[in-house]
Design a protein around this nucleic acid. Structure first.
Lengths: 194, 194
DNA sequence: GTCTATAAACGGATAGAC
DNA sequence: GTCTATCCGTTTATAGAC
């Protein structure tokens, strides 16, 4: 894959880039976006500000790379889980895999939050809920459920529930996110899929 | 009420403080926390940076005052609505008043988001969900519902749903947040209160 | 009460040495 | 490929005039 630098990357370059993306995610996660300055990123990586800017043309490019990395990991996991499940179980698979994936990657969660609140162009809200809305529609069709439901709102409620569960398990590691996800699945089944 | 400055405030001081809190909320809402610098706040208020720091000892103090203002308005509205409703209708009243209040105050929403993501000490997550959890418990008792439910998770799902609805209506003013709130009420009734 | 002036630190980014 | 050195803008905050 050609890189953002317009040529192929050497192995060491690739490794450095990956390391920089990694420390960026960590810094954003632990101390917030504002604290993730070039200086601190460089320090965490063991090089200097200028060194960082050799690998990425600007701080924004680095942050975007970090954001992309996090999103790619998420969609890969969740996409596979949803496809593995049948249409009738799509929403449940989505909920379980989202909660499972994010619960195991607290640093990714912070990164996603910052990206969303910073009005990131990458995070089209519609992109998220419309995919979930289709899962809901497909599940209702597969189950032969009659009646009308606003699938957009249904999707938003599912997404909001997931966010809340993940956020809580981030704050309190004792919180049983898996059980909460099962409750959400049940509520969705009873309230939206029947 | 004695002020943070350790004495009573004159009327003009009070007015200035209120104005500064107001422009702070507006700036945070429109351009994000990072863009709400002392300089821009001062400019928006028609005075200078030093002038701002006469009224508030630091930028952080000003931001905290703005945050408190927003939270106070929210809890006053929602608290009244919940008390006006009976125990059986507590969760529904909570959902409707939260969505209604925040939908009418988009700037407050942004302020709240920034406060939460900035790891504000003021926003004890437990403080929010435990109050809602009690509403759920009371409603179940008032309705004579049997069976066990994790009220903490129930409260989190309600809160997450509200957040998602409000966020969406913030992004798309065409979105029917009131109808979405009714869907959430219905889902809660069917999935958590029966 | 609000101003000017200024300090001191930090932000991202560039040039050029090695 | 990474460093030193530097630039320039911006930030919060203070001192002291008016």
């Amino acid at each position: 894959m050609p890189s953002a630098r317009g040529r192929n990357l050497t192995f060491t370059e690739e490794a450095r880039r990956a390391q920089l993306v990694d420390v960026t995610i960590e810094l954003v996660a632990e101390r917030g976006y504002a604290a993730a300055s070039l200086g601190r990123i460089a320090e965490s990586a063991g090089i200097t500000k200028a060194g960082v800017l050799y690998h990425f043309p600007s701080k924004q490019a680095l942050v975007e790379a970090a954001h992309e990395h996090v999103v790619s990991a998420l969609v890969a996991t969740v996409g596979a889980a949803v496809e593995a499940a049948g249409p009738a179980e799509g929403p449940a698979a989505y909920i379980r895999s989202m909660v499972g994936h994010l619960r195991e990657r607290p640093r990714h969660v912070r990164m996603l939050i910052e990206a969303i609140t910073s009005g990131a162009s990458l995070t089209d809200s519609k992109e998220r809920w419309s995919a979930v809305a289709e899962l809901v529609s497909a599940a209702r069709a597969a189950r032969g459920v009659t009646g009308e439901v606003d699938v957009r709102s249904a999707a938003l409620l599912i997404g909001g529930g997931i966010d809340a569960i993940v956020a809580e398990s981030l704050r309190d590691s004792e919180y049983d996110a898996v059980a909460a996800a099962e409750l959400l699945v049940e509520v969705v089944e009873r309230g939206l899929l029947s």
